[in-house]
Amino acid sequence: MTYQLNGTAIEHDEEGYITELASWSEDLAGLIAKEEKIDMTVEHWEVVNFLRDYYEEYQIAPAVRVLIKQIKKSMGKEKGNNKYLYTLFPYGPAKQACKIAGLPKPTGCV
């Protein structure tokens, strides 16, 4: 199971999460997003970049609430809610955005 990006094969698991986190690139994010039927906008990138920064510091994706707070800060109060995040990532900000950001899937009862 691989993504084909500019002639290189990048491995992913059954659900499309890349297995080697270092193999991520913005081009790859664009490719995964396309497969997820998402057009990446500035707002999408904002979320993806925040997830990556957070992951780099904490080795895990942030709680949805923390993400919302960040969005509130950067995009304004009316966008700082879970529903808005779902309009960006219909399959859920945690799981779908993580996939595009090249992070492992959050596991557990979430």
Partner: peptide, 18 residues
């Protein structure tokens, strides 16, 4: 220690945030 794979540093940061 948990289903998420949440480690102490992130755990503490999350709680402080709350």
């Amino acid at each position: 220690g948990n289903n998420l794979g949440l480690q102490e540093k992130a755990h503490r940061a999350t709680l402080e945030d709350l």
